[in-house]
């Protein structure tokens, strides 16, 4: 019983950074923008969170700073792709490269230092419910945040007028422009939101998951988050499912290593990446599903007539 709970909690821990970053990217892509810089924004978030928490001694300030840093960093991407209409794929790559570099410089002094941990919050009474309590009501605040975000994003996209506007921009930016919807502004906001979420995902890594700073600590999670959005065919609830599935794969791999299963550690480490490829292939094979859900103007630059 204990072990099961422990495993579930650790799946949660592995899934949360993916979930946060992927939800942000989902909103970005729903607006028709493909930001491949998730990895870069995450790692900037991670280092800023760690540094701020260490300097101020307050993990919440660290989290807040990470959200702002992720958003600020995404602004670079937004300016290039939205204002200057550059190629989104290449610009996203540039953001990742820059993020890895910048975080390296910022984090130089933090390497090997102990971090400030963002501790879990037990909700009184509820967390004492047997079995369910510790799993649902004694979690890290960022886990709660990620759950709330799933519901929030789902509500926003499919129930609110603003969400409708955002989806319309992602479906057909020319029509949206003709109707007077401020395409570029909507996309700026979406990209900023995505940056903030990626920053929070990074903060989870450096404040909770390992609570220390190592260079390149995101280890491709930003890219897996991008894959999750495709996997989820741009639906928030499916992102939740996908993130936990990937969390489970990661944890399975750790446990297999710990149990001394005679498979080389490198093969197990590769597992999440291979799983990503397999999932992408399976999803792509279902053409109807992908084509109906893919935002039709995804990745296409928009320059209004003037």
């Amino acid at each position: 019983m204990e072990t099961t709970a422990y495993i579930i909690l650790s799946v949660c821990a592995a899934a949360t950074p993916l979930l946060l970053a992927a939800l942000g990217e989902l909103v970005v892509e729903r607006s028709g923008v493909l930001n491949l810089g998730v990895e870069g924004m995450m790692i900037v978030g991670a280092v800023v969170a760690f540094g701020t928490a260490q300097v101020t001694g307050n993990a919440y300030l660290g989290l807040l700073a990470a959200v702002f840093a992720g958003a600020a960093f995404s602004l670079l991407f937004a300016f290039l792709t939205l204002t200057l209409a550059t190629n989104q794929v290449a610009t996203g790559l540039a953001l990742t490269i820059l993020g890895l570099g910048v975080s390296g410089i910022i984090g130089e002094d933090f390497v090997g230092q102990p971090g400030v941990k963002l501790t879990s919050i037990s909700i009184p009474y509820l967390s004492e419910i047997p079995m369910v309590g510790p799993l649902l009501f004694a979690q890290n605040p960022l886990v709660y945040l990620s759950w709330a975000l799933v519901a929030g994003v789902a509500w926003f996209l499919f129930r609110s007028r603003a969400g409708l506007t955002l989806r319309s921009v992602g479906d057909n930016h020319v029509s949206a422009h003709v109707l007077g919807i401020p395409v570029i502004r909507v996309r700026y906001l979406a990209v900023l939101f995505g940056g903030g979420c990626a920053g929070a995902g990074g903060a989870y890594l450096s404040l909770v998951y390992v609570s220390q700073w190592t260079e390149g600590m995101t280890a491709g999670r930003g890219w897996i988050a991008l894959a999750l959005v495709v996997f989820a065919s741009w639906r928030p609830l499916r992102v939740l499912a996908g993130a936990y599935l990937f969390g489970a794969v990661t944890i399975a791999q750790f446990h297999a290593q710990a149990l001394g299963i005679p498979i080389p550690a490198q093969f197990l480490t590769s597992l999440p990446y291979i799983a990503t490829i397999v999932v992408l292939v399976l999803i792509a094979s279902n053409r109807r599903l992908t084509m109906v859900n893919t935002p039709a103007s995804l990745g296409k630059p928009f320059v209004p007539d003037r």
Binding site: R161, L164, T165, R167, S168, D171, N172, V174, S175, A176, V178, L179, G180, I181, V292, P295, A296
Partner: peptide
Amino acid sequence: VFQHFSLFDSLTVAENIALSSPPGENI
């Protein structure tokens, strides 16, 4: 009424209409 319709394929008819209605009214 535009020649090249300013419509959105992946949205419903009601959502398309809502997009140019003033905000506030629900779909």
